[in-house]
């Protein structure tokens, strides 16, 4: 076997192994409902009838009773923002959970005054394990916060420009917004209690703003009453409970999986399968294919 042939064979085998690994290995992106790891949201779909939404264009035309959970980690287009506005104005409930993404763009488009601060909210005293996991126990009674005694956030931020009547949850008095990321409180940094969950209305719709989407990941829903608030969100939903997947972090693994899925679906069409048959036949029969001046099976 020549070196060239060996390298080609090695490359083909490597690619085949990689394809199998990519296909079999579960998704590991944040908040993905197919991700069973600590940072995924697979348990949401197992506990509740959460429907992953591949595109905001798939939002229902009559959104009454429907809840959309949106974690905008990828920028939204104007048409997508308009889809969201139609959804809320039509009576849908939007749960906008963000910390360092594009949540403010959504709020701005919906003409809601509240904003995500975009800096880390730290709580050195009232926390789970460390100050990046602040414990939220100042909660206003509401259908969303019912039966919730305390929540644990994870690398959260806080909300700004929220009127008192709209606040559903506040951080503790010992929390602060770490504006300069030095992990310590400085005299010019705002201290708690700071709003972390608020609710707003737009026409007949409702907007619930949460300053940390991490409460929806698998490793967080067992802490304190995080699961209860998810249950409450499910209970205020009389129709569909949608979780947007189109604005979540997109890794190379995910992209590759998508490509493989596209290839697979293309191959399962009659044309694709016939093409595959043809290619495999050519590869298989190539060694015995007659060359110029030879009969079938002749070898020079």
């Amino acid at each position: 076997m020549t070196l060239r042939r060996f390298l080609v064979l090695l490359a083909v085998v490597s690619v085949a192994i990689l394809i199998v690994i990519v296909w079999v290995f579960p998704s590991d992106e944040d908040f993905q409902t197919k991700n069973p790891f600590w940072n995924g949201s697979s348990e949401l779909s197992s506990y509740h009838s959460f429907t992953p939404l591949a595109s905001l264009a798939e939002l229902p035309a009559v959104p009454g009773g429907t809840t959309l959970i949106l974690v905008p980690y990828i920028d939204l287009t104007s048409s997508e923002l308009e889809e969201i506005r139609h959804f809320v104005a039509g009576g849908g409930t939007l749960v906008l959970a963000d910390d360092y993404g594009f949540g403010n763009k959504v709020l701005e488009h919906l003409k809601v005054e509240a904003r995500f601060a975009g800096q880390v909210l730290l709580d050195p005293l009232f926390s789970y394990k460390n100050q990046w996991l602040p414990r939220i126990y100042n909660l206003s009674p509401d259908s969303v916060t019912g039966d919730v005694n305390s929540l644990v956030f994870n690398h959260a931020t806080c909300l700004m420009d929220v009127s008192d009547s709209n606040v559903l949850a506040l951080s503790s008095s010992f929390s602060f917004l770490d504006l300069n990321d030095n992990e310590e409180w400085d005299s010019d940094e705002p201290t708690g209690p700071l709003p972390v969950i608020s609710q707003h209305t737009l026409a007949s719709g409702r907007i619930i703003v949460i300053s940390d989407p991490s409460i929806f990941i698998n490793s967080m829903d067992t802490l304190d009453d995080n699961y209860t608030i998810i249950e409450n969100i499910a209970e205020i939903t009389s129709s569909q409970l949608l979780i947007d997947q189109s604005h979540l972090p997109y890794s190379d693994l995910h992209q590759t999986k998508d490509v493989l899925a596209s290839v697979r679906s293309a191959l399962t069409t009659p044309v694709g399968t016939l093409a595959l048959v043809a290619v495999l036949l050519i590869i298989t029969l190539r060694p015995i294919w007659p060359r110029k001046g030879e009969g079938i099976g002749d070898i020079a």
Binding site: W38, N39, L133, N154
Partner: peptide
């Protein structure tokens, strides 16, 4: 900013 860490 890190969006979250594994609480476990």
């Amino acid at each position: 900013h890190t969006p979250h860490e594994n609480p476990a």
